[in-house]
Nucleic acid binder design. Structure first.
Lengths: 249, 249
DNA sequence: CTAAATAGCGTAGCAGGTACGCAGTACTGG
DNA sequence: CCAGTACTGCGTACCTGCTACGCTATTTAG
C-alpha cells in the first residue's frame, strides 16, 4: 500500500491510483479482488457475514494479508459502497429532463436492490468514487436542457438524491425486516389496533378505522408504486421551480 | 421478562406492556433505565461506545443483569430508536397544512439531531413504538383540513417520511464524516478536479468549472437551506396534488 | 415453613478486528 | 553476482464484545 500525495486514502483506492513499486514480490491480491469477494459474500449472506477472515478465506489467503491492500475493514466497506453501484446505464437520447430523471431514479434503485446490504452502510462523505460520481454526472446531465444555473442543478439533484436515499432505506431495510419477521407485517393492523388509544392518536385511529392497514401487508421488495408517487410529487415541484426560474429571465 | 401474548416482543417492550409477576425479588432495573443509560452513552460517545458492559457499568449492575430485561442488544437498539424521538411538540393551532408539515419536518430534524447516532440504526419495521406513532399521527393530522382520502394522506406522509429519512441520513452521516475528516470536505473541489476527466464526467466538469464547489465546503450540521429547498419542492408537488384531487370531485 | 418463581451475576465460550514482527521474495546499484 | 532494500504474505497474540448457562439470593403463595 503506497500513498498518493494529495488525495484521501480511500479515494485513491477507489480510483485505482496507487504508486506501483518495482521492488519486492508481486502482489498476489488486488484491492479489486478483495472488494469483489467481499461483495459476493455480502450479497449471498448479508453484510454481517463479511469478516476479514471470511473474505480472505474466499480468496485463499490469510486474514492479515488483506491489510496490505486495505487500511481497515471500514476502508473496505467504503470501497465496496462505490463498487456496488457500478456505472449507470447510458441515458436514452432525446428525452426531456423529467423522464430522464425518472429513468435515473429507477436505475439507482435497480442497482441498489442487487446489493441489499447497501442501505446499512453509512454515507462516508460527499460522492467521491468513480461510480458515485458517474451517477451524479448522469443526473446533472439530465437537467442540461433546462435553463437552470449550475448551482440550481446541484440543488435539484441533491434534493432528488435525498429522496432516493430515503427510498433506499425504507425499501431495503423494510425488505430485510420482512425477511426476518414476516408476521410483524402481516399483523401490523392488528398490532396497531391493540395498542393505539384513539384519544392520543386521533388521526391514526381515523386511518385505521378507514381500513387502510386492513389487508395483511404483504411486503413487496420491488413494489415501486409508493416510491413513484412520492417521486412524481417531487418532480412536480421541480417542474414548477423550472417554470418560475425561466419566467424571471 | 414475561410475554405479551399477541404482540411482538419489542413492541410490548416499547409500550411498557409486561406482565408483572408477584413472586421473586423486585427488579432493581427497568427497561426504561437501561434505555436511558444507553442513550446517554450514545449521545456522549457515539453508538460504538454502547456495549452491554458499558451500559451495565453505568447502572451499577453486571453485564448479564441486562438480559433479564432485554432479549438482545439488537432489541435494545430498537427500543432506543423509538425512545430517542420523544413526543412531537404540539402542533400550533389554526395553521394550514403546509406550514404544519414544515413545522413537523423541522421538529423531526431537531429531535434527531439531538442523537447523532440515530441515522446509523436500520429501520426495523413499520412504525410501532409510541413515539414513532405519535409523529406519524401528527403528520396525518396536519392533512386533516385538506379533502384527501385517508389513503392519500398516508401516501403523502410516507413520501414526506421518505424525504426526511434521506435528509436525516445525509445530514447526520455527513456531520459524522466531517467530524472525522474535515479535510475531505475542505478539499472536495480540489479532489474532484484532480480525479475527474471532463470527457467521462462532462456535466460534473461543467459544474466544477462554474466554481460551485470552489469555496472550501465548511460543513454545517444545522444548515437547513438545502433541506428546505428540497422540502419546498416536495410540498409544491403535494399542493398540486391536492388541487388536482379536489378539483376532480 | 416450604416450594415456586424470579432477579442478579460469574464464568466461559466464541467471534471478530488488528498491531506486530518475522520470513521469504524480487528488484537495484555496485 | 551479491548485498541491500523495499515489499508481500502471514502466524501469533491481544483485546473487545455478545451471550448461553447455571448458580445463588430473594420474595411471595399456600
Amino acid at each position: 500500500m503506497s500513498e498518493q500525495p494529495d488525495l484521501p486514502a480511500d479515494v485513491a483506492l477507489m480510483w485505482g491510483l496507487r504508486a506501483v513499486s518495482k521492488r519486492g514480490p508481486k502482489p498476489s491480491l488486488t484491492v479489486e479482488d478483495i472488494v469483489r469477494a467481499a461483495i459476493e459474500i455480502a450479497d449471498a449472506e448479508g453484510l454481517a457475514a463479511v469478516s476479514m477472515a471470511r473474505v480472505a478465506e474466499r480468496l485463499g489467503n490469510s486474514t492479515m494479508a488483506l491489510y496490505r491492500h486495505v487500511k481497515s475493514k471500514d476502508d473496505l466497506l467504503v470501497v465496496m459502497q462505490d463498487a456496488a453501484l457500478e456505472r449507470p446505464r447510458p441515458m436514452p437520447d432525446g428525452v426531456d429532463w423529467r423522464t430522464a430523471l425518472v429513468f435515473w431514479a429507477d436505475g439507482v434503485m435497480t442497482a441498489v436492490r442487487k446489493h441489499r446490504w447497501y442501505s446499512k452502510l453509512a454515507i462516508s462523505g460527499p460522492p467521491a468514487g468513480p461510480n458515485n460520481l458517474a451517477w451524479f454526472d448522469a443526473a446533472l446531465g439530465a437537467l442540461d436542457g433546462t435553463g437552470l444555473s449550475e448551482e440550481s442543478k446541484v440543488g435539484v439533484v441533491m434534493g432528488l438524491m435525498t429522496y432516493i436515499q430515503g427510498q433506499m432505506r425504507l425499501s431495503l431495510d423494510l425488505a430485510a425486516a420482512y425477511a426476518d419477521h414476516p408476521d410483524t407485517f402481516s399483523r401490523y393492523g392488528a398490532t396497531l389496533a391493540r395498542v393505539i388509544d384513539p384519544r392520543e392518536y386521533p388521526a391514526l385511529a381515523q386511518v385505521l378505522a378507514a381500513g387502510v392497514f386492513e389487508e395483511p401487508t404483504t411486503f413487496d421488495d420491488s413494489d415501486d408504486t409508493d416510491f413513484d408517487f412520492g417521486l412524481q410529487l417531487y418532480l412536480d415541484g421541480v417542474e414548477r421551480f423550472i417554470e418560475r426560474v425561466c419566467q424571471d429571465k
